[in-house]
Design a protein around this nucleic acid. Structure first.
Lengths: 245, 245
DNA sequence: CGCAGTGTTGAGACGCTTCAACTCACGTGG
DNA sequence: CCACGTGAGTTGAAGCGTCTCAACACTGCG
């Protein structure tokens, strides 16, 4: 199943949706520390949504009736300027929530990077449940705080780091997120294309490519394939990421 | 009372501290929607801390025993690279919280911009109280979500906007925060210096100055003094901020 | 094989930074 | 009262890093 890449403006492709009483529970069990009672109540509110690679989940500026929790796969979250400049603000993986920020309209767009499954909750009932469940709200606060801290790191990166420092920081942040990774030491899978890396780091595709080439030349990394990377000198990579070189 | 500007590394100037049972209540009453019972309990945990302009409240990397709530004044929150490059991640004003993100150490530094009063809570008891009070936790989640949304806007700004677009966005975001402002239409006070604006927008002092000059030449703004600014053409300012020019 | 999508490489352009000189406002002390 | 010093802001000229534009290489697939 392949999703259309670009759709006429205002036309959202409809992904596959199924009701599923237990999917809310499945989704939240990833997070841990939520009472069974809450899981059951949340399950009743959830729908399963399956997304093909490239499928659009939310569009900035459109009405925001839903909150999402990712069951499997990964999403890119981004903002656009009218002329097409794109800033990817983050990547989301299994267990992450999307759309918690309150408001009538989405303030970001989100697309599946690979085939992805999410749980969809209507915002009203979801919020009511959250307000009635302390552990759930506590977990959301915990996660949101961490996201905020990550966002502040990204601001430092975007505002003050050079291209090579950005790439180094990016490569160091990557590993933790891929649960299906064989975890060979120093081995990093690049699940995203150059264009996504560029739009995440505030660079162009060409600069990303050039910097990776420079890192190869310096012996900091090697690349068995275009999406597989081995960190040969973690020490140098860390030094660059911290702005010490 | 004047605080020393720069202190030897590792030496934190001790600001004036007073116990105050009612200050927690005062601090949180700014936020609204917190039960009186919670305010009383929180009040018992709080100390008042008075900061002179330039005084350091937290330093990145130091142990983080406290959570703060700003009673009056304003703070700059920032991160540093080893060579001194600074990214200001945000400005905080009366009612805002600082240090919610859990962790052993602060992940940012914070300094008073002007004479500022904050309420200081020990993290352990504060967290215990939050976990026991739903409305309090709900408010914190609400605020943190908004901060995260603002952070994502700032990522778009830092990653993809030009200097003039950054300044335009900044000037449009400013007004809401100054409660003591006379609110003359189009009139904006610049409470911070050029260096702070530059480090917030990922630019240099010189570029900030040049762009303001360019805006004056275009008739978009005028500046009666170096810290007072009048938006003459809000339409043009919005167009620039949105990347439409 | 040919094509499309993706990635790499090169040359030149551009925008912001760097470095330096100068102006301005303000406070201090002779 | 004014010379002086200081910190902040402005302006100019040159430099540098990244972007833009363009050509080329690689990969997978019909």
């Amino acid at each position: 199943m392949l999703a259309p890449r670009s759709l006429p403006h205002g036309c959202v492709d409809r992904p596959e949706v199924n009701d599923c009483d237990s999917c809310g529970a499945r989704a939240l069990s990833v997070c841990g520390s939520v009472a069974d009672r809450d899981l059951e109540r949340l399950g009743g509110l959830a729908e399963v949504v399956k997304l093909a690679a490239g499928a659009v989940l939310t569009r900035e500026g459109e009405p925001a009736p839903h909150v999402f929790n990712i069951t499997s796969g990964s999403l890119r979250v981004y903002k656009l300027l009218p002329d097409g400049r794109r800033q990817i603000t983050g990547f989301l993986f299994a267990g992450d929530f999307l759309g918690l920020a309150i408001g009538e309209f989405y303030v970001f767009s989100a697309e599946a990077i690979e085939p992805t499954t999410v749980c969809r909750f209507r915002k009203g009932p979801f919020r009511a449940l959250v307000e009635s469940s302390q552990p759930l709200e506590h977990m959301l606060l915990h996660r949101t705080s961490h996201e905020l801290a990550a966002a502040q790191n990204q601001m430092l990166l975007l505002g003050r780091k050079t291209a090579i420092e950005r790439l180094a920081s990016f490569l160091l942040d990557l590993p933790g997120h891929d649960p299906a990774r064989p975890t060979a030491p120093g081995h990093v899978r690049l699940p995203m294309k150059r264009g996504e890396i560029a739009d995440y780091l505030g660079l162009t595709i060409e600069t990303v490519s050039r910097v990776l080439t420079r890192m190869k030349a310096k012996g900091i990394i090697s690349m068995p394939s275009q999406s597989d990377l081995i960190v040969e000198r973690p020490d140098l990579l860390r030094a660059h990421a911290g702005g010490e070189i």
